[in-house]
Amino acid sequence: MSIIQTKDVKKWFGDFQALKGITMDVAEGEVLVVCGPSGSGKSTFIRCINRLEQHQEGQIIVDGIELTNDLKNIEAIRSEVGMVFQSFNLFPHLTVMQNITLAQIWVRKKNRAESEEKAMELLERVGIPEQAQKFPGQLSGGQQQRVAIARALAMEPKIMLFDEPTSALDPEMIKEVLDVMKELAKSGMTMIVVTHEMGFAKEVADRVMLFDEGMLVEENTPEEFFNNPKSDRTKLFLSQIL
């Protein structure tokens, strides 16, 4: 059963059409890697999935709930979809621990002890339990991104969206973030990952998609995608990136 379904999703920014009818679906537990040149609409697309951007035409159904102007639906979807950003977007005025417990306390209405326990568990999972009382500004980029992943996981989401999680990082830090993501993928989390890390795609992805100029150009298994692409656009893209 597919957990995310989109039908002919279109989106404009003023005169510019960012998405030109995207139709796809994601099954539960599937890891989907979305790649494409910059400005191809891939980030816009995953931001539409948890309503950070509003699509103008078409349908997006997440876990059986359609994304419309309905207040309750938006709230429900957001608490089921976790998101990790390119620029981490940690809250700089809160400690790592507070960053992770905040939403549990205020949105999930858990009590403090419980949420702190959960936070420590997640910090151990991403490998930085010792940084709990530090402020984000005191951490390295890789550590910050891992905290961001922990923060998203604290909401116990069914789906995780990653918006170029490694592109703001130094090369030596990319690995530590990718390791966390791999571990997450193996645990059976449904993930949509926008990334340029083709190694990650090869190793973990169940499916790879290529976006170009707001359209879904190719959708394939990783083996086929890298070794035997269907469209010329994919070949060109691969030749540029590899």
Partner: peptide
């Protein structure tokens, strides 16, 4: 305040007031 802070708060499901 960078736009990302608003988005991050939205993404973890906070209400506008929160």
């Amino acid at each position: 305040i960078p736009k990302g802070q608003y988005e991050a708060a939205d993404a973890i499901g906070m209400s506008p007031f929160q």
